[in-house]
Design a protein around this nucleic acid. Sequence first.
DNA 1: TGATCCCGCCAACGT
DNA 2: ACGTTGGCGGGATCA
Length: 783
Amino acid sequence: RSVLKTPLKQAATSHSVLTELQPDCQPLTTPPKPKEILPADPWTPTSNLKMLISAASPEIRSREQRRELSNNPSEVLQAKHCLQEHLSGDEYEKSQPSRKEKSLGLLCHKFLARYPDYPSTAENNYICLDEVAEELNVERRRIYDIVNVLESLHMVSRLAKNRYTWHGRHNLSKTLQALKKVGEENKYTQQIQMIKKREYEHEFDFDDERNEEMARSFGSSEQSEMSFVELPGMEFRAASVNSRKDKSLRVMSQKFVMLFLVSTPQIVSLEVAAKILIGEDQLEDLDKSKFKTKIRRLYDIANVLSSLELIKKVHVTEERGRKPAFKWTGPEVLPNIQGTKLETTSTTSPPPISESIPSKEQCSKNLFPSRGKQNFTRHPSLIKLVKSIENDRRKIQSAPTSPVKISASTDQNISAFPSKMAQVPVIAKHQLEGQSKKAKEMKMKLSRSALDCNLSSPEVVLKPQPPRPAAPSEQPAVPQPLGVCPPSHSPVSPVILPQTHSGVSYAIYLHPSPAHTVTTYSPSFMLQPLPHANLTGIESINSKVVNKITTEEGDNQIATDDPTKCLTAKERPNTKSETSSQRCLKRSQALQENNLVKRCRSDEESLDTSLTFFPSGYLIPLTQCTHGNKAGFPDEEKAGICSLQHTTYSSPIAGVIPMTASELKAVNIPAFHITPLNIMLSPTSIAAAPVLSGSSLNSSNTSSAPNPSSSVLNFTLQHVGLIPAGVQVPANPVLQHVPVSAQPENVSHSSENVNLQEEKVSKNILQLPDRGGLSGGYSAVIP
DNA sequence: TGATCCCGCCAACGT
DNA sequence: ACGTTGGCGGGATCA
């Protein structure tokens, strides 16, 4: 044990290197412990090698590291060859224990490398913290950091004392949905806007006033404290094991993720996140130290999320300067029916307490529902008490639904869903949907694709956006589970899809100003013609503030929030005179002809965006399988599709990847980018459009078939390091069913792999769809 | 410098 | 009493 605790110093052994190299791919279980005692020491060159290896993973970080390594390649090489001899090589020691090598992000990569994204049920994926810590040569403390955030995503769950169960990404989509939902319930979107607004308003008057205001607002908004969001099937056992102290990291991590999921340009600055998170707990004193601490934690979380490729670091440049921020690069989370169904299902079986309630409960416990301000002194004990009570209550409620806590079943449950779903009365679902807001269908979303910007800053684009590893692999996983888990336990997903979004079919629009999306937070999709005075005001305000988003590495500006810049050439003229809302209206009207409805959104960040839509036909609209209020699928079919649910994001990849820059060019995309005017096409039109029809498009979009053979895909992924070498991503049958899908990120990524430097065009293009844009990009359109 | 964030003390818990 | 978890924030690094 002592060893465990102080793993740090050891002499490096050569073989350790080897082990590191390969083992990564290996699925967990019991990793090789050959190296009984300290393997490589972090400081030695060996570490460099490791890093190199790890570099395979598509990440900024890795790149950076690579660079570093490159600096003293000789050393590395030497190390390679001669390592064994000079174990303790003092010389090397100093070489670089560089901080980066010890970074949480890197560590997390190593950690993740040990386990498959989609573990099969069969293998018992348990994680022994001690072992991991030892093997990775880190203090256990660090492992906790990683595990805690993974836990927040339900990628792992605590089994017992020193032990966790690895679930991989099986539960990810559900978790994200749940988080999104909770985030919506918490009005995070609004909070974010409020903060931004305030920031802008009083730039300087620090503290008190502002804080109080905030506090007030939060309190008034009835900001409920919510604690850990659990997935139905899964958490209980963990809960029992865990002390109820799930306090910070886990919860903070979830909240952080929620912020991304609810904000439109899925970009969240640390500052804002910290404020919201702080505000939430206790509005009390936003003293600086607290804020600072919060930020520190957020960095920790962000590092892990980055390793998971759920977010990526960017910079938002404002007048004031650059602010660190992160952009969501994870799968788009659609409110999904599946979730609804599932939930419904679960609800259904047991005595229906109240439909939504149970789920809600499960998702989050609301503590202190609306207490105005808390007293400054927080009584942890009370809080805890409350929480525990809530927790218990929740358990009870959920109990019937998710009777089993069997570990194994957990992951798999998901897969089980489909069958269940099928069984579930469709009706319920419809009802739900209908309630939601079907009536008003119109919503329009601006995509925040940064077309223009992209052009300006090509580099960014190239950046590898790691293709969603998850997606591809996910599907494969699905099948497995089915067999395994008894439907009975299937944890139904707690998530309820909010009615909030019910889009039926989506069209992707690109608009010139990349960064901004104007979003109005309106649950209902109706087009709201200016309902919000705020909106206008905000816009104006924002307009002042220019934001640029930059990728970390290059400082390349990825996108500019400042609409002005982007629009300048193009829409600028109109902008000032017309309010965005007005514009929306106009457009909407126009659209209506097409039967398109849109929902205007005001973006927190900047708003003026004119809405320019660009049918990204090539990129495609994705249909969401589930959604549809109107989706025409037969229930069964839906269910089936949904089962793939996670698929939502997966499908796109396949389709996209294949495209090459040249193809894109061929497509005439260029014309698009430039287009100053907003173009909006109905899906139909798109299809018709020659451009779109372009070979590339067709092939790619049509997701399924033609594209890159699965082999290619696998190859690519493997290369990129997204998936272990051995793993194959089967062509996804599902995809074919899926009408259309586009995943921006993937695109870019693929492009990178495929052809390298055609970028200008490709980059731009690729970027369009960008993940951030994705969610934002799609707008619901009605046929 | 400011942005990052490693490190590990030490308290809260569990057993 | 000891081990496990993990909040927390000083202060080292990095850019």
